[in-house]
């Protein structure tokens, strides 16, 4: 189902969920949970948004049943650790490539996905100051390096 324009702010989280459907269903589940919560704050009034969010909720409930015996889904603290470890793994990979001066699409995507997953971490509660800084840095780096490569410049 097409994403209504009013919910554009969650499109990348939903895309990350789709990319992890098979690779890491726990990541997919929490990306969709974040998108659901954020989407309801963005717009759950207009009919097309409500229809989209109902479908997303159906998907979440189905995933919940399928993954029910997984502790990362059943226990919030385990889920939190799962997402945080995954986000930081992506961040460290991209940061290492950056420090080695290896600039490419994969490392840009890893910086950006790390920032999205740090958004997702907020379903478990307030982000730590460290994670807020990581998210800001990762999003800035992804944008900066993407623009450098687009303009044919070498990132510092």
């Amino acid at each position: 189902m097409a994403l209504p324009a009013q919910l554009r702010a969650i499109q990348h989280h939903l895309r990350t969920a789709a990319e992890h459907e098979k690779r890491d269903p726990v990541v997919a589940y929490y990306c969709r949970l974040y998108a659901m919560q954020a989407g309801m704050k963005l717009d759950s009034k207009t009919p097309e948004c409500r229809k989209f969010l109902v479908k997303l909720m159906d998907q979440l409930e189905t995933m919940k049943k399928e993954l029910g015996d997984n502790d990362s889904i059943g226990q919030e603290v385990v889920g939190n650790a799962h997402i945080e470890n995954y986000a930081l793994k992506m961040f460290l990979y991209a940061d290492n490539e950056d420090r080695q001066g290896r600039f490419h699409k994969n490392m840009i995507k890893s910086f950006y996905s790390a920032s999205l997953l740090l958004d997702v971490l907020s379903v478990f509660g307030e982000l730590s100051e460290e994670n807020i800084q990581h998210r800001k840095y990762a999003r800035w780096k992804a944008t900066y390096i993407h623009n450098c490569l687009k303009n044919g410049e070498t990132p510092e």
Partner: peptide, 27 residues
């Protein structure tokens, strides 16, 4: 139709909120 539409909308919104709360409670 305006008021009916609004009450349907808010009923559906409430239902979504309840489903989300239930999903989270089971975590």
């Amino acid at each position: 139709t305006g008021s009916v539409g609004t009450s349907v909308a808010s009923a559906e919104q409430d239902e979504l909120s309840q489903r989300l709360a239930k999903l989270r409670d089971q975590m």
